[in-house]
Design a protein around this nucleic acid. Structure first.
Lengths: 287, 287
DNA sequence: CGGCGGGCGGAATGTTTATTCCAATCTACG
DNA sequence: CGTAGATTGGAATAAACATTCCGCCCGCCG
């Protein structure tokens, strides 16, 4: 063979890798076949292990692993391992890579389109994640809580005010009693004070947590009002002062974080609550 | 140090780790808190990254990561990283099980998860469309228009109020003069009347078009104030009364329409305008 | 039967890794 | 305002790492 059979085709996605492996396996020498079989049978070993560990478990030499990767057109073991890792990663990787790529195109296009792609991609990432991360039991518990409320009091400020103002709109359309704490005239705490034990406070806040939201939620929780929180991590001050909380992770692009996943969850809560309450929505209420 | 403060309790499961972190966080020094926040926000970074990579992304020194792990009773970074990795290992198996479990619970739970998937899907569709449908030249023209404005007046009502309230937040953070027409006390038209020829009115409305938004936009247009519209079709009343309009198509699920694409466009406008104006954003303004 | 070449194991290599250490800096309290 | 302790950044270090290299082995064809 005078020239390289494969000049350069380092397959990045896992499915493509499996396909390539199936195709090449027959022509592979004994030890390399052995590695191939081990790889497909121990996927996360391949993702997390080092050459030494994997080699021992597969019953081969560490150098064989490198040869295996190179036989599949990768530059080395590490590059191949990335395929196994990307499979486990929650899409955040290629978010980073794209971000870097975007920086390049930005200059040429004037930047606005590149920014749009960045925000779109951050939103897509967030949506993918929320599907996997939401625990159905928690979601159902949240809906049950809301459906049992006499009045739902909506609290959110700054970045999250859009979410609660949307919820106020949606609940209104769906015929569910909800009041929006909009903090007009600085009366936020007073607006929220109408919440009693038969009501539910729905508080939304992500880092950095708006003081007003945290205080109102904490006060309600202290008074024995059920508080349902939408927040971004277990460390959130909201998570400590509530009856139940839903965790929604949003991806960010540049200095701005997506709100797509939070909106999807908010819409779900609104509609599911309406269904549970047995109220039928105005048929063409949102067109 | 004569005796270990903690004899040995290296927490192995991820949920336990989060709980521990939540408990210890208040007593942690600044940099370690920073690591804690980054860790929870970038879980797979923690699982796959090396100390050098993670440290850079978290804005700390590699040694700080080791100290962080040790502050949480691990022998070092590597031991702690195993927690993040084991979580992903589980997830692989989990994923199949969960999917099967979902199918089962769906009927029983009344379908909250199914609703979520529906809304997520509608959002994803909208995002895909907007990437293809937006014309870069229009987007750039919109940014140029906004960047030249003395003050940006934001108009949107009902379903679109979340968009403009978000824009008010974003522009504020970016140091761009913008006022939100929130129609408090029914003063919407008066609030919008401050807009003069050097300003720009940014109006957002989708069918069925809110009367207030349409009227304010038309009035401004008549007065010679540049109006930039975000709307859903060429037939929109907004499209007739403006200097420039961007078309954004949103998919709907059930009676509710996604807002994901509109949000992505709104964020783009905000950041691109800031960049064009030559103002640098507060580096960690939205975290 | 003998030589040739791909395949392989294992040591050698240079790089990257986690970790430790110490000096500089900051913080809090007197 | 000053000092003791905690906190931090950054260089130093040693272990682990992926990778390369070399020589041996084994099977195939002449």
């Amino acid at each position: 063979m005078p020239a390289e059979p494969q000049p350069a085709s380092p397959i990045k996605d896992f499915d493509g890798f499996v396909a390539l492996l199936r195709q090449r396996r027959p022509t592979l020498p004994k030890r390399l076949k052995q590695v191939a079989d081990h790889a497909l049978a121990h996927l996360d070993d391949m993702a997390f292990g080092s050459t030494a560990q994997i080699a021992e478990r597969a019953g081969v030499q560490a150098s064989t692993l490198v040869r295996f990767a190179q036989a599949l057109d990768y530059s080395g073991f590490s590059e191949m391992q990335e395929v196994f890792r990307s499979r486990l990663r929650r899409q955040v990787v290629d978010h980073r890579e794209r971000l870097a790529a975007l920086r390049g195109t930005q200059a040429a296009t004037g930047g606005a389109v590149a920014l749009l792609e960045g925000f779109v991609h951050a939103s897509e990432t967030s949506l993918t994640q929320v599907k996997a991360a939401i625990r159905p039991a928690d979601l159902d518990a949240a809906v049950t809580l809301l459906a049992g409320a006499r009045t739902i009091v909506l609290v959110g400020a700054r970045r999250m005010f859009p979410i609660v103002s949307y919820l106020a709109y949606a609940f209104g359309k769906l015929g569910i009693r909800a009041v929006l704490v909009d903090n007009v005239a600085g009366l936020g705490p007073e607006q929220a004070a109408i919440a009693g034990p038969g009501d539910v406070v729905l508080a939304v806040s992500y880092a950095p947590y708006a003081a007003m939201t945290v205080e109102i939620a904490a006060a309600a929780h202290r008074r024995g009002v059920p508080v349902l929180a939408l927040t971004d991590s277990a460390l959130s001050p909201l998570a400590e002062n509530c009856r139940l909380w839903l965790e929604v992770a949003e991806a960010d692009y540049g200095a701005f974080r997506s709100v797509a996943a939070t909106f999807a969850v908010a819409m779900t809560l609104a509609v599911a609550t309406a269904e549970k309450s047995g109220l039928s929505a105005d048929p063409d209420l949102d067109r």
